[in-house]
């Protein structure tokens, strides 16, 4: 309990002091996870929409795989990305290992399936409502996907949020491909892991509190947006 109380006061002190290292870590965390979320949405949303409207042999198996991939262990993803980016790996020539780019790649692989699987469910429900009307309008598949993504945009915000939450909270993948290098690849979760292993529990907890507050802020923002959409009957 003493640790928790100390952690809170330390967290406040850290934020109020304008600690440059802390802000660097927070900024990198947000940069990596938001970029990964954006990329995952660019990949996962159209993919989810396509699977939502398409009927093809083996669709059931595709759904099982998509859903199973939501549970990808971060360390496994980290390891796979590491093997590809390491000097002896097929993409070693790019020199990306231990860079924020490698961390973004790993987190994108981790959360794109989450975005795809969840958006598939959301958009399939929406398509169930629109399908006959869209067929009457003689829309192309591309037009249907675009219309579903636009009309489902507020529900899809929550999907993106789930991806962001997973990305910003994971430690295994970024630790392996980023290496937790100070001033280069250190993010909130790897910093927390490091401080914990060094016995600096209060500092680790303080960082955890900052992370929670950021997650809370992002969620509150999205929730406010959704509420306004609900009032407009756009959800």
């Amino acid at each position: 309990m003493q640790n928790i109380a100390e952690a809170f006061s330390l967290a406040f002190a850290l934020v109020l002091s304008g600690d440059a290292d802390l802000f660097e870590i927070v900024a990198l965390s947000l940069q990596v996870s938001l970029t990964a979320t954006l990329l995952s949405c660019l990949i996962g949303l159209p993919l989810g929409a396509l699977v939502a409207i398409a009927r093809f042999p083996g669709r059931g198996a595709v759904l099982v795989v998509m859903n199973a991939l939501m549970g990808l262990p971060p360390v496994v993803v980290g390891l796979l990305v590491y093997l590809h980016l390491s000097r002896s790996g097929p993409l070693g020539f790019l020199g990306l290992l231990y860079t924020p780019t490698a961390m973004i790649i790993a987190q994108t692989i981790l959360i794109a399936p989450i975005v795809a699987a969840l958006s598939r469910q959301v958009l399939e429900d929406l398509h169930g409502e629109y399908a006959e009307q869209f067929r009457s309008f003689c829309l192309t598949r591309r037009q249907i996907v675009r219309a579903l993504l636009w009309d489902g945009r507020y529900s899809l915000l929550t999907v993106g949020l789930a991806g962001f939450g997973r990305a910003v909270a994971e430690v295994g993948a970024v630790m392996i491909v980023g290496g937790n290098i100070d001033h280069l690849t250190r993010v909130m979760t790897t910093a927390i892991a490091l401080e914990t292993s060094r016995g600096e529990l209060a500092l680790a907890l303080a960082l955890g509190i900052v992370l929670l507050v950021i997650a809370l802020g992002v969620n509150a923002g999205v929730q406010a947006l959704r509420m306004s959409a609900v009032r407009q009957a756009y959800v």
């Binding site: 409502e129 629109y130 006959e132 009307q133 219309a147 636009w150 009309d151 009957a233 756009y234 959800v235």
Partner: peptide
């Protein structure tokens, strides 16, 4: 035109 109009969320 369907019995129950299907309006887009717009």
């Amino acid at each position: 035109v369907f019995q129950k109009p299907v309006l887009l969320r717009r």
